[in-house]
């Protein structure tokens, strides 16, 4: 089986977000970047599937040279080779187009992604890629088993889940508990250094652009209520906060 895993490079989930240049530029200074947490689940499941039934895992990232540490980490976790499309990932359609271009050449059985990136939270790249390739797309997938040409999946829906069956090839947006996050071991880290990382040029355009950023208004002080008098909170929620 040939699997393509698409990873984003995003600020660590504990990052304090800020902007510069009159709130027009995202401030990357001092931030640590990681593989998107959902993409990490997709990667972990892809590596498990390869270990079970053979095949290859290729990682793909649309990003500048700054993302190479995250790509090397994916290789250390168990991907066989990597492709970086050398461009700033400016918009969902643009990113999807780069992925679809690579996918068309590679004949992959599975294209695995995260349900969404944790920076822009769009959650649409998998669907766009699916339509561009004319194959089914599902997200968020929390369980995936492959039997020959058939995939059995569980997808989360509001307040529950649904079980699905479809035949390969497929595009999937993944989330836990599809697999446990994998930590690279020493051997993985060593071999990752020599695994192929091909850099290719982008093509196509962005359909959207960001002109400015802003922060939510600061929270006011927290009103403390003594535990003995806990019941009085309900009255405050009714008369003061007006949410009941």
């Amino acid at each position: 089986m040939k699997i393509l895993v698409c990873i984003s490079s995003v600020p660590d989930t504990t990052s304090k977000i800020s902007f510069t240049d009159s709130e027009t530029v995202f401030n990357k200074a001092g931030l640590q970047f990681i593989i998107g947490p959902y993409d990490d689940y997709a990667l972990a499941r892809a590596v498990e599937l390869k270990e079970q039934s053979g095949g290859t895992v290729t990682v793909l990232n649309v990003g500048t040279v700054e993302t190479e540490p995250q790509i090397r980490k994916a290789l250390a976790i168990g991907a066989d080779d990597a492709i970086r499309v050398d461009a700033e990932p400016t918009d969902s359609y643009f990113v999807a187009e780069q992925i679809a271009n690579i996918a068309k050449e590679g004949n992959y059985d599975l294209i695995m992604m995260g349900r969404e990136t944790t920076d822009y939270n769009s959650g649409v790249v998998h669907g766009i890629v699916g339509e561009m390739l004319g194959i089914p797309s599902f997200s968020p997938v929390m369980e995936l088993n492959i039997d020959g040409n058939q995939a059995k999946m569980t997808r989360e829906i509001e307040g529950g889940k649904e079980k699905l069956e479809a035949s390969l090839p497929l595009v999937l947006g993944c989330q836990e508990p599809i697999a446990e996050w994998k930590i690279p071991n020493m051997r993985g880290i060593m071999t990752a250094r020599t695994k192929p990382l091909n850099v290719v040029a982008p093509s196509g355009d962005s359909l959207t652009s960001i002109s400015a950023y802003s922060m939510p208004p600061a929270k006011g002080a927290c009103k403390m209520i003594p535990a003995e008098d806990a019941g009085s909170l309900i009255n405050l929620l009714r008369t003061e906060a007006k949410v009941l």
């Binding site: 600020p11 977000i17 902007f19 944790t118 920076d119 822009y120 939270n121 359909l207 959207t208 652009s209 960001i210 002109s211 400015a212 950023y213 802003s214 922060m215 939510p216």
Partner: peptide, 13 residues
């Protein structure tokens, strides 16, 4: 964006 930590003014062309 950033799961509620910020907002982005986004133009669609």
């Amino acid at each position: 964006i950033f799961t509620g930590k910020a907002f982005a003014q986004t133009s669609i062309s």
